[in-house]
Amino acid sequence: MTNDLILRVQDLQTHFFTRTGVVKAVDGISFELHRGETLGIVGESGSGKSMTAWSILGMVPHPGRIVGGSIHYLGENLLDKSKGEMQDIRGSGICMVMQDPLTSLNPVFTVGDQLTETLRLEYNESRRSLRQRAIDLLANVRIPAPEDRMTNFPHQMSGGMRQRVVGAISISRSPNLLIADEPTTSLDATIQLQYLRLLKDIQEQTGAAIIFITHDFGIVARMCDRVAVMYAGRIVEQSDVEDMFDHPGHPYTEALLQSVPDLDTDVDMLPSIEGQPPSLDSLPVGCAFAPRCPYAYERCEEYPPEFTIAASHTSRCWRAE
Protein backbone atom coordinates (compact mmCIF):
# COMPACT_ATOMS: atom_id res chain seq x y z
CA MET A 1 0.00 0.00 0.00
CA THR A 2 3.03 2.29 0.34
CA ASN A 3 3.06 2.94 -3.41
CA ASP A 4 -0.51 4.25 -3.11
CA LEU A 5 0.45 6.89 -0.57
CA ILE A 6 -1.17 10.20 -1.53
CA LEU A 7 -0.52 12.37 1.52
CA ARG A 8 1.80 12.27 4.52
CA VAL A 9 1.48 15.05 7.10
CA GLN A 10 4.23 15.08 9.72
CA ASP A 11 4.34 17.27 12.85
CA LEU A 12 2.36 20.05 11.12
CA GLN A 13 2.22 23.31 13.10
CA THR A 14 0.09 26.28 12.01
CA HIS A 15 0.14 29.25 14.36
CA PHE A 16 -1.55 32.66 14.36
CA PHE A 17 0.40 35.59 15.72
CA THR A 18 -2.03 38.03 17.34
CA ARG A 19 -1.85 40.91 19.81
CA THR A 20 -2.97 38.63 22.62
CA GLY A 21 -0.41 35.93 21.89
CA VAL A 22 0.35 32.95 19.68
CA VAL A 23 -2.71 30.88 18.77
CA LYS A 24 -1.65 27.29 18.08
CA ALA A 25 -4.47 26.37 15.69
CA VAL A 26 -2.67 23.21 14.53
CA ASP A 27 -0.06 21.98 16.96
CA GLY A 28 2.06 19.09 15.71
CA ILE A 29 -0.29 16.68 13.94
CA SER A 30 0.69 13.69 11.79
CA PHE A 31 -1.30 11.32 9.58
CA GLU A 32 -1.18 9.47 6.25
CA LEU A 33 -3.73 8.96 3.50
CA HIS A 34 -3.68 6.38 0.71
CA ARG A 35 -5.39 6.17 -2.67
CA GLY A 36 -9.09 5.30 -2.37
CA GLU A 37 -9.05 5.78 1.40
CA THR A 38 -11.29 8.11 3.45
CA LEU A 39 -9.98 9.72 6.62
CA GLY A 40 -12.49 11.37 8.94
CA ILE A 41 -11.29 14.28 11.08
CA VAL A 42 -13.66 14.93 13.98
CA GLY A 43 -13.80 17.26 16.95
CA GLU A 44 -15.58 20.27 18.39
CA SER A 45 -15.60 23.67 16.69
CA GLY A 46 -12.21 25.33 17.04
CA SER A 47 -10.30 22.06 17.38
CA GLY A 48 -8.24 22.74 14.23
CA LYS A 49 -10.06 20.57 11.69
CA SER A 50 -10.64 23.20 9.00
CA MET A 51 -7.27 24.86 9.60
CA THR A 52 -5.64 21.50 8.86
CA ALA A 53 -7.37 21.55 5.48
CA TRP A 54 -6.37 25.15 4.75
CA SER A 55 -2.78 24.30 5.67
CA ILE A 56 -2.70 21.40 3.19
CA LEU A 57 -4.06 23.72 0.49
CA GLY A 58 -1.49 26.41 1.31
CA MET A 59 -4.22 28.92 2.05
CA VAL A 60 -3.68 29.79 5.72
CA PRO A 61 -5.27 33.22 6.28
CA HIS A 62 -3.35 36.18 7.73
CA PRO A 63 -1.94 36.48 10.40
CA GLY A 64 -1.37 32.74 10.44
CA ARG A 65 1.48 30.75 8.97
CA ILE A 66 2.87 27.24 8.97
CA VAL A 67 5.83 27.26 11.36
CA GLY A 68 6.86 23.61 11.37
CA GLY A 69 6.42 20.14 9.97
CA SER A 70 5.91 18.90 6.43
CA ILE A 71 3.08 18.06 4.02
CA HIS A 72 4.23 15.48 1.48
CA TYR A 73 1.81 15.11 -1.45
CA LEU A 74 2.78 12.38 -3.92
CA GLY A 75 6.24 12.41 -2.38
CA GLU A 76 6.86 16.17 -2.67
CA ASN A 77 6.76 18.61 0.24
CA LEU A 78 4.08 21.20 -0.46
CA LEU A 79 5.78 23.64 1.91
CA ASP A 80 8.63 23.89 -0.61
CA LYS A 81 6.28 24.91 -3.44
CA SER A 82 5.88 28.46 -4.74
CA LYS A 83 2.50 30.21 -4.83
CA GLY A 84 2.26 29.52 -8.55
CA GLU A 85 3.03 25.83 -8.11
CA MET A 86 0.43 25.55 -5.33
CA GLN A 87 -2.14 27.26 -7.53
CA ASP A 88 -1.55 24.59 -10.18
CA ILE A 89 -1.95 21.80 -7.60
CA ARG A 90 -5.16 23.22 -6.13
CA GLY A 91 -8.08 22.06 -8.22
CA SER A 92 -6.10 19.68 -10.41
CA GLY A 93 -4.54 17.46 -7.74
CA ILE A 94 -6.14 18.60 -4.49
CA CYS A 95 -9.64 20.01 -4.33
CA MET A 96 -11.88 21.16 -1.50
CA VAL A 97 -15.67 21.05 -1.10
CA MET A 98 -16.71 23.94 1.11
CA GLN A 99 -19.28 23.83 3.89
CA ASP A 100 -21.65 26.44 2.39
CA PRO A 101 -22.27 26.02 -1.36
CA LEU A 102 -24.07 29.37 -1.68
CA THR A 103 -20.94 31.30 -0.67
CA SER A 104 -18.69 28.96 -2.71
CA LEU A 105 -20.47 29.79 -5.97
CA ASN A 106 -20.37 33.19 -7.67
CA PRO A 107 -23.94 34.60 -7.59
CA VAL A 108 -23.57 36.66 -10.79
CA PHE A 109 -22.51 33.80 -13.09
CA THR A 110 -24.57 30.85 -14.23
CA VAL A 111 -23.73 27.31 -13.17
CA GLY A 112 -22.66 26.56 -16.73
CA ASP A 113 -20.26 29.52 -16.83
CA GLN A 114 -18.61 28.48 -13.58
CA LEU A 115 -18.20 24.87 -14.67
CA THR A 116 -16.78 25.68 -18.09
CA GLU A 117 -14.38 28.24 -16.58
CA THR A 118 -12.88 25.47 -14.43
CA LEU A 119 -12.79 22.99 -17.31
CA ARG A 120 -10.99 25.51 -19.51
CA LEU A 121 -7.99 25.29 -17.14
CA GLU A 122 -7.68 21.57 -17.88
CA TYR A 123 -8.84 21.17 -21.48
CA ASN A 124 -7.86 23.23 -24.51
CA GLU A 125 -11.10 22.62 -26.39
CA SER A 126 -13.86 24.50 -28.15
CA ARG A 127 -16.63 26.21 -26.22
CA ARG A 128 -19.14 23.63 -27.43
CA SER A 129 -16.94 20.76 -26.25
CA LEU A 130 -16.42 22.34 -22.83
CA ARG A 131 -20.16 22.90 -22.51
CA GLN A 132 -20.82 19.22 -23.21
CA ARG A 133 -18.23 18.23 -20.60
CA ALA A 134 -20.01 20.50 -18.10
CA ILE A 135 -23.38 18.92 -18.90
CA ASP A 136 -21.86 15.46 -18.45
CA LEU A 137 -20.44 16.49 -15.06
CA LEU A 138 -23.84 17.72 -13.87
CA ALA A 139 -25.36 14.44 -15.02
CA ASN A 140 -22.59 12.56 -13.20
CA VAL A 141 -23.57 14.20 -9.89
CA ARG A 142 -27.20 13.28 -10.62
CA ILE A 143 -28.65 16.67 -11.34
CA PRO A 144 -31.87 16.18 -13.34
CA ALA A 145 -32.18 17.95 -16.70
CA PRO A 146 -28.50 19.01 -16.61
CA GLU A 147 -28.66 20.87 -19.92
CA ASP A 148 -31.43 23.11 -18.58
CA ARG A 149 -29.58 23.68 -15.30
CA MET A 150 -26.58 25.11 -17.16
CA THR A 151 -28.41 28.45 -17.45
CA ASN A 152 -29.44 28.60 -13.77
CA PHE A 153 -27.87 31.00 -11.30
CA PRO A 154 -26.95 29.55 -7.87
CA HIS A 155 -29.88 31.24 -6.11
CA GLN A 156 -32.30 29.47 -8.46
CA MET A 157 -31.25 26.06 -7.14
CA SER A 158 -31.94 24.26 -3.86
CA GLY A 159 -29.21 23.73 -1.25
CA GLY A 160 -28.82 20.10 -2.29
CA MET A 161 -28.50 21.03 -5.96
CA ARG A 162 -25.94 23.74 -5.20
CA GLN A 163 -23.87 21.28 -3.19
CA ARG A 164 -23.95 18.88 -6.15
CA VAL A 165 -22.75 21.68 -8.44
CA VAL A 166 -19.85 22.35 -6.05
CA GLY A 167 -19.11 18.62 -6.17
CA ALA A 168 -19.12 18.70 -9.97
CA ILE A 169 -16.66 21.60 -9.99
CA SER A 170 -14.48 19.75 -7.46
CA ILE A 171 -14.12 16.64 -9.62
CA SER A 172 -13.98 18.46 -12.96
CA ARG A 173 -10.17 18.26 -13.13
CA SER A 174 -9.97 14.71 -11.73
CA PRO A 175 -8.20 15.41 -8.41
CA ASN A 176 -6.67 12.51 -6.52
CA LEU A 177 -7.28 14.14 -3.12
CA LEU A 178 -10.65 15.59 -2.18
CA ILE A 179 -11.10 17.53 1.07
CA ALA A 180 -14.74 17.77 2.18
CA ASP A 181 -15.22 20.34 4.96
CA GLU A 182 -18.58 19.47 6.55
CA PRO A 183 -20.28 19.52 3.11
CA THR A 184 -23.61 18.17 4.42
CA THR A 185 -24.14 20.71 7.24
CA SER A 186 -26.64 22.83 5.31
CA LEU A 187 -28.56 19.84 3.88
CA ASP A 188 -31.58 18.05 5.30
CA ALA A 189 -31.29 14.39 6.32
CA THR A 190 -32.59 12.90 3.05
CA ILE A 191 -30.36 15.06 0.84
CA GLN A 192 -27.40 14.38 3.17
CA LEU A 193 -27.72 10.65 2.56
CA GLN A 194 -27.94 11.13 -1.20
CA TYR A 195 -24.87 13.38 -1.19
CA LEU A 196 -22.82 10.94 0.88
CA ARG A 197 -23.70 8.15 -1.54
CA LEU A 198 -22.66 10.42 -4.39
CA LEU A 199 -19.24 11.06 -2.82
CA LYS A 200 -18.74 7.32 -2.36
CA ASP A 201 -19.67 6.69 -6.00
CA ILE A 202 -17.25 9.38 -7.17
CA GLN A 203 -14.50 7.84 -5.05
CA GLU A 204 -15.14 4.38 -6.52
CA GLN A 205 -15.02 5.79 -10.05
CA THR A 206 -11.88 7.89 -9.61
CA GLY A 207 -9.94 6.21 -6.79
CA ALA A 208 -9.54 9.58 -5.07
CA ALA A 209 -8.55 9.80 -1.42
CA ILE A 210 -10.92 11.83 0.75
CA ILE A 211 -10.44 13.81 3.95
CA PHE A 212 -13.88 14.21 5.50
CA ILE A 213 -14.07 16.94 8.14
CA THR A 214 -17.12 16.56 10.35
CA HIS A 215 -18.50 16.57 13.89
CA ASP A 216 -21.02 13.82 13.07
CA PHE A 217 -19.99 10.29 14.09
CA GLY A 218 -22.87 8.90 12.03
CA ILE A 219 -21.18 10.25 8.90
CA VAL A 220 -17.84 8.86 10.10
CA ALA A 221 -19.36 5.39 10.47
CA ARG A 222 -20.90 5.55 7.00
CA MET A 223 -18.08 7.22 5.05
CA CYS A 224 -14.68 6.68 6.62
CA ASP A 225 -12.04 3.96 6.78
CA ARG A 226 -10.01 5.68 9.49
CA VAL A 227 -10.66 8.55 11.88
CA ALA A 228 -8.51 11.14 13.63
CA VAL A 229 -9.96 12.91 16.67
CA MET A 230 -8.73 16.49 17.19
CA TYR A 231 -8.79 18.52 20.38
CA ALA A 232 -7.18 21.93 20.92
CA GLY A 233 -5.15 21.74 17.71
CA ARG A 234 -3.82 18.23 18.28
CA ILE A 235 -4.77 14.72 17.18
CA VAL A 236 -5.51 12.92 20.46
CA GLU A 237 -6.56 9.60 18.92
CA GLN A 238 -6.27 7.90 15.54
CA SER A 239 -7.66 4.54 14.54
CA ASP A 240 -9.63 2.40 12.13
CA VAL A 241 -13.28 3.40 12.41
CA GLU A 242 -14.57 0.08 13.72
CA ASP A 243 -11.89 -0.18 16.40
CA MET A 244 -12.54 3.37 17.61
CA PHE A 245 -16.28 2.78 17.95
CA ASP A 246 -15.69 -0.50 19.81
CA HIS A 247 -12.69 0.54 21.91
CA PRO A 248 -12.23 4.33 22.20
CA GLY A 249 -8.77 4.96 23.65
CA HIS A 250 -9.07 8.60 24.73
CA PRO A 251 -11.55 10.08 27.24
CA TYR A 252 -12.46 12.82 24.76
CA THR A 253 -13.38 10.27 22.07
CA GLU A 254 -15.34 8.32 24.67
CA ALA A 255 -17.26 11.47 25.66
CA LEU A 256 -18.02 12.35 22.02
CA LEU A 257 -19.39 8.86 21.36
CA GLN A 258 -21.53 9.00 24.50
CA SER A 259 -23.04 12.26 23.25
CA VAL A 260 -24.41 10.56 20.12
CA PRO A 261 -28.16 9.85 20.55
CA ASP A 262 -29.21 6.20 20.73
CA LEU A 263 -32.63 5.83 19.10
CA ASP A 264 -33.23 2.54 20.95
CA THR A 265 -32.77 4.12 24.38
CA ASP A 266 -35.25 6.45 26.07
CA VAL A 267 -33.37 9.14 28.03
CA ASP A 268 -34.46 12.44 29.57
CA MET A 269 -31.20 14.21 28.73
CA LEU A 270 -28.25 13.33 26.51
CA PRO A 271 -24.80 13.14 28.13
CA SER A 272 -22.67 16.23 27.56
CA ILE A 273 -19.01 17.14 28.01
CA GLU A 274 -18.66 19.50 30.97
CA GLY A 275 -16.75 22.75 30.52
CA GLN A 276 -15.39 24.42 27.40
CA PRO A 277 -12.41 23.78 25.11
CA PRO A 278 -9.36 25.80 26.18
CA SER A 279 -8.31 29.00 24.48
CA LEU A 280 -5.63 28.14 21.93
CA ASP A 281 -3.48 31.13 22.95
CA SER A 282 -3.29 29.96 26.58
CA LEU A 283 -3.31 26.17 26.60
CA PRO A 284 -2.99 24.48 29.99
CA VAL A 285 0.22 22.71 30.92
CA GLY A 286 0.01 19.02 30.12
CA CYS A 287 -3.08 17.42 28.61
CA ALA A 288 -5.45 20.08 27.26
CA PHE A 289 -8.48 17.90 27.97
CA ALA A 290 -7.57 17.30 31.63
CA PRO A 291 -9.77 20.13 33.05
CA ARG A 292 -12.83 18.41 31.50
CA CYS A 293 -11.74 14.79 31.97
CA PRO A 294 -13.35 12.54 34.60
CA TYR A 295 -10.19 10.41 34.74
CA ALA A 296 -7.64 13.21 35.23
CA TYR A 297 -4.89 12.73 37.84
CA GLU A 298 -1.46 14.20 38.67
CA ARG A 299 0.31 12.60 35.68
CA CYS A 300 -1.96 14.60 33.32
CA GLU A 301 0.02 17.76 34.20
CA GLU A 302 2.60 16.35 31.78
CA TYR A 303 1.56 16.18 28.12
CA PRO A 304 1.29 12.49 27.11
CA PRO A 305 3.22 11.02 24.18
CA GLU A 306 1.50 8.95 21.51
CA PHE A 307 0.79 5.44 22.83
CA THR A 308 0.04 2.47 20.55
CA ILE A 309 -3.12 0.67 21.72
CA ALA A 310 -3.36 -1.78 18.83
CA ALA A 311 -2.33 -2.01 15.18
CA SER A 312 -3.19 1.34 13.55
CA HIS A 313 -4.69 2.63 16.83
CA THR A 314 -2.92 5.34 18.82
CA SER A 315 -3.94 7.62 21.69
CA ARG A 316 -2.41 10.52 23.59
CA CYS A 317 -3.64 9.61 27.07
CA TRP A 318 -1.66 8.37 30.07
CA ARG A 319 -4.35 5.70 30.66
CA ALA A 320 -3.12 3.98 27.49
CA GLU A 321 0.43 3.67 28.85
Rank of each mutant, 00 (worst) to 15 (best):
Q114L: 05
R128G: 10
R131M: 13
V111C: 02
S129T: 15
R128E: 15
S126M: 10
S129C: 14
V111N: 00
T116K: 00
P107I: 06
Q132Y: 05
L115V: 03
N140P: 01
D113Q: 04
R131N: 12
D136T: 04
R142N: 10
D136G: 00
L115G: 01
V108C: 08
S126C: 11
D136R: 01
A145D: 15
L115S: 04
F109S: 03
Q132H: 09
L138I: 11
A134D: 05
A134I: 06
N106Y: 03
E122L: 05
T118W: 05
R128A: 14
P107N: 02
E117A: 07
R142I: 06
S129L: 15
L137H: 05
F109R: 07
T116E: 00
V108H: 06
A145P: 08
I143A: 14
T116Q: 00
Y123T: 09
I135C: 11
P107K: 01
R142K: 13
I143C: 15
L119C: 09
V108N: 02
E117M: 05
L119V: 10
R120Q: 12
S129I: 14
L119W: 06
Y123S: 11
Y123Q: 05
R131Q: 15
E125S: 13
V111T: 01
A139R: 13
A134M: 08
T110C: 09
R128K: 14
R120E: 14
R133C: 08
N140S: 13
R128P: 03
P144C: 06
L137V: 08
N106D: 10
V108E: 04
N140F: 10
R128N: 13
A139W: 12
I135L: 11
T116Y: 00
E117S: 03
R128F: 11
A145G: 12
N106V: 01
T116N: 00
I135G: 05
T116L: 02
Y123A: 06
N106M: 04
A139Y: 13
L121H: 12
E117W: 01
A139G: 14
L138T: 09
D113M: 06
P144G: 04
N140Y: 10
I135A: 08
P107T: 00
L119G: 06
L121K: 12
G112F: 01
E125Y: 11
